[in-house]
Amino acid sequence: MIDTDQATSKVTPLGAARRLSPPSPHVAADARYWSEQMAAVASRRDRDGFMRIYDHFAPRLQRYLLGLGVAQASAEELVQEAMLRVWRRADLFDPARASLATWLFRIARNLYIDTIRSEPNWMPVQDGLEWLDSEAASDPASDAEAFVDHAGLKQAIDELPAAQARLIRMSYFEAKAHREIAAELNMPLGTVKSSLRRAFGKLQAGMRRTR
């Protein structure tokens, strides 16, 4: 078993400190490890496997939601709701489509928009969107996740130029809209968008890096 906590807890993503070491080979193994835990949850209702997932991800989801400005108690409720979805819908998790971290991020983000922003019908619409691709994903030819290089993505995140890293951070960690970012950094709106576009291009290149 991989000690994922040790592998990641001291790393601050998009941090100012540039780490020159090569990307951790654990990242890809991590994704596989969590997929295996999910398979055990789906097939055997494995509580131990589920609680391993909980112990690793719940405090990170909590950090994510606190960053979006959700109050401590509400964040904890959302985390529990997100984890409960993982438990109940484990059979819908498709490791050929996305990693568990990606799936959990989606669930937490959607619960945040549904609950905190009270967007009408947000969850049903998102469930519908997810369903659209669930058919195609069962086709082995479209095993999209197999072509995702997690270590490459991690490296691309670490290597983003500081200005682009800042825009990614303001988007993902603080849920700041383009216009808010433009105002805060005194940048033209178009520059905010083109910088984010370029940053995303680099991250996608990292995900599809050939090994």
Binding site: P13, F105, H150
Partner: peptide
């Protein structure tokens, strides 16, 4: 979302 998951 993969980016978001990795950052999270």
């Amino acid at each position: 979302d993969r980016t978001g998951g990795m950052l999270m």
